[in-house]
């Protein structure tokens, strides 16, 4: 199963909307319509998503459970992106350096056959750093930074996300950062060696609508990172402790890499009526982004007048979507 049905509905809807914009929108919106159309279609949410989720050695039962919970949260979240079942691979505590590299290579082969795609790697567990770089602790020989760099190298043509949810992982940041890749590490350097809390809050971000800051029901990497980072800071403040970990995010486009679909998008079926409504919603969201980008070039009163008009359209449409999908207030957290 994939999300081609929604992409198709979107293209249909875009044709109509762009035409409408050119006939009734102002000059600024006309100029931006085409770029919006192209931008929407290029969003990674429509791309084929592949992922390898690994939980490393816990060392004791509590950590093993914590890593397994976090891995499950990531796996479940990625499933909502409508990924075909075998595109996401979950490797548990028994995984080894070779099995992880093998899983990445398998994804690489499949991605080579697509025109676009996103590959995500999640390493959840303990890590340590030395002069040779960062190591992710797994059964047998550790997976080291060079292994990860080498395994990801053939994927340079696709968008990548690497999440190192482990201690000392900041040591791998510089080696992994490159164009087209977003890297998240739980620590800022290899010197932050304590077991980290950040992954726990990252998992929480994937399970709560609270982390969907713009409430568009697409949880992005940047939103999940923001949520987890804020919760980590708050955690140490409340414990009256100096924070021993400082998560980092490097790379562009983290706001465009989805981790989960939520709410009505998550529950959407392949019914044509719902698909059409959701396609319209995505178009309106595109219009909204264009309008926001134009804010500094517009008179304040004009901006808010157009914003209100657009927001009312979005709100009415959302009511229709909720009616069609059977979504109710009870499905929402806030």
């Amino acid at each position: 199963m994939n999300n081609a049905w929604l992409k198709s509905a979107l293209i249909q809807r875009l044709r109509t909307v762009v035409l409408e914009w050119f006939t009734r929108g102002n000059q600024l919106l006309k100029q931006l319509a085409l770029s919006m159309l192209l931008g929407l279609l290029a969003l990674p949410v429509w791309a084929e998503n592949y992922a390898v989720v690994v939980t490393g050695l816990g060392g004791d039962a509590a950590y093993s459970k914590q890593f397994a919970d976090t891995g499950s949260a990531v796996f479940d979240a990625l499933q909502t992106l409508d990924i075909e079942d075998d595109r996401i691979v979950f490797l548990d505590e028994s995984s080894t350096r070779d099995s992880i590299i093998g899983a990445i290579e398998a994804a690489t082969k499949r991605l080579a056959q697509t025109d676009s795609g996103v590959f995500s790697l999640f390493l959840i567990g303990h890590g340590n750093a030395d002069t040779q770089g960062w190591r992710f602790n797994v059964s047998g020989p550790d997976l080291n930074t060079q292994d990860i760099v080498a395994a990801l190298n053939p994927l340079s043509s696709v968008q990548q996300l690497v999440v190192l949810a482990a201690s000392a992982s900041g040591a791998a940041l510089d080696a992994l950062v490159q164009p087209g890749r977003v890297v998240v590490s739980a620590t800022k350097s290899g010197g932050e060696i304590n077991a980290v809390r950040f992954p726990v809050f990252f998992a929480e971000a994937l399970r709560t609508a609270e982390s969907d800051y713009d409430r568009n029901e697409i949880l992005t990497t940047s939103e999940a990172f923001r949520f987890a980072q804020a919760r980590t800071v708050e955690y140490y403040e409340q414990q009256n402790l100096l924070a021993p970990e400082h998560a980092r995010l490097k790379g562009d486009n983290s706001a465009d890499i989805p981790l989960a679909l939520l709410g009505s998008l998550k529950n959407a079926s392949e019914e044509p009526e719902v698909a059409a409504l959701l396609a319209t919603r995505l178009v309106l969201e595109g219009q909204f982004k264009v309008l926001k980008d134009a804010k500094s070039d517009m008179a304040t009163a004009d901006y808010y007048r157009e914003l209100e008009e657009l927001l009312l359209r979005i709100a009415r449409l959302q009511q229709s979507i909720d009616l069609a999908t059977g979504w109710s207030e009870n499905d929402a957290e806030s």
């Binding site: 409430r215 969201e285 209100e308 959302q318």
Partner: peptide, 26 residues
Amino acid sequence: ARRQVLYSLESAPFYRPAQQLLLSLS
């Protein structure tokens, strides 16, 4: 209230409770 609800939706355009308040104000 209208100003604040617009600010709210400006940062989260699909925030349903704010959408409902905007609709009722409208």
